[in-house]
Design a protein around this nucleic acid. Sequence first.
DNA 1: ATAGGGTTAG
Length: 603
Amino acid sequence: MQHSAKLLRFLHSSIFTTSERAAEQNCLSLLQLCNSLPKLTQFHAHLVKVGLHANPLVLTKFTHVSSHLNAVHYASSVIFSPEPTSQCYDTFLFNTLIKAYAETNNSKHTAIHYYTFMLSCGIRPNKYTYPFVLKACAGIMDLRLGQAVHGSVVRLGFCYDTHVLNTLVLMYCSCENGIDFGEKLFDEMPKCEPVSWSVMIGGFVRWGMSSEAVSLFRRMQIAGVKPDEFTMVMVLSACTDMGALELGRWVESYVEKEKIEKTSELCNALIDMYAKCADIDKALRLFRNMSKSKRTTVSWTSMIVGMAMHGRGLEAVSLFEEMRRAGVAPDDVAFIGLLNACSHSGLVKEGKRYFNSMTNDFGITPRIEHYGCMVDLLSRAGQVKEAMEFVHRMPIEPNPVIWRTLITACRVHSELNLGETITKELITDEPMHDSNYVLLSNIYAKMLNWEMKSTVREVMEKKGISKVPGSTMIELDDGIYEFIAGDKSHGQDEKIYEMVDEMEKEMKRAGYITTTSDVLLDIDEEDKEGALNRHSEKLAIAFALLKTPRGTTIRIVKNLRVCTNCHTATKFISNIYNREILVRDRNRFHHFKDGFCSCKDFW
DNA sequence: ATAGGGTTAG
């Protein structure tokens, strides 16, 4: 009798368990049907009704689904409702929650918050937890926090796990001055698969250390680790940064040869590389050959930005229209590219229309960059007064970039007194920013006020402000060369400087007159003309004329904007030496041919 | 049942 009661109890409990499990399964499949927030809310009601609102597994899945509906907050409000039922908390649930916040913009701090909350609840993190937490640290670029988390990783013994290690390197490489720690960690870890290499190569690219990125890629090949599509994206990114077209072409053929999967991201990286390494038509061909389903907003934006950089504004605009017809939603970045295209091509009316359409038709709130594009658009078109009014009407505080755009416009369109006033205000706000002084000096040069111009230089010297040195990169068959102004580190300096002198003679014979108003401030006045001849792009062009076959195109990449003087000189050189010269400056391409530039002297 | 790296602008 006692025996059968026991059996009965057992049966009862197993029936209960079975039915609870059935309810749980039922909930999980119901959750899969929740493809909208209202449905999820309905589901939540159901959850309470069947008493599974504290079931860890169901709540985890609930979190997952909410995050896909961009509503993680809803999940956390359910989990941590006014009466928290802490028995439902487990590691898996917290991991999912931290992951969701770590992968959402502007929510990295919340991810960290739930990590610390998890610890305070006495829930032990596992090796799955740390990649998410470290990703959040990387996202907010918080080195000290990342280091603290690293400490916990070591204490809990997760520092031998490959995934955790890779995310640690990622975290260090994402934080300012942290790349050294990242590199040290990378050097010490086992490196048998491409992920660690990709992270480290990406770290170098992120901080503009592109040649280090390429050397590391070479080390990876020597180590016999097969690169994958992620690695190739990173290497392409380095090529793009350096303007290394030949290296980029090699990457493309390598991808073909090794049958590396051409994901959207890899195609986009290739398109961007070709566009920014001066072969915009090849970029367009790649884009056209990309299957329509693979073309993302980034693909379209890369093409629009590329066309804008090459001064092909009308084509950028028609690509934008085609993108709309293709049903791909433009984002805020696409509009920056589009407005830039309008600006560089003098399409004022179109630019204004698109700026309004951005908010009205696409619901995108303009950011400071978009306002900057509009100020640039009006300024370049000579509408300085309108640009000023636009700045005063802007609903957000103008930043120094906006003021500098206006100041340049004042100088170009001879509103010198206004320009002087704004620049002085800007210097009060930003006393250590070198280009503010250069702007002021340029305005005085145009006013022919040499006394004030030299005062500006004295002030700069007294405050210990020096100008960012101009540098130019050039890729030849045997590698990439970098020149800085007055450079004498290339072993062939004598020949290069002889060539510069010869160029100068030929240009003068052709009627070239040196103008010195844009001369850098850190150069002695009496040496103005000589200094201009030593600008890095002149050195690079002289080097290219010496080292490359007659008639071939010369491609160079500058870190700053090209100065008026070098611009004029390069036009002359393209004519005298019968060379096409493609110059990528900080903002755009200049295509010099037969004494003319594609920018039509408007940049 | 939750693991690691990516492209556009600034």
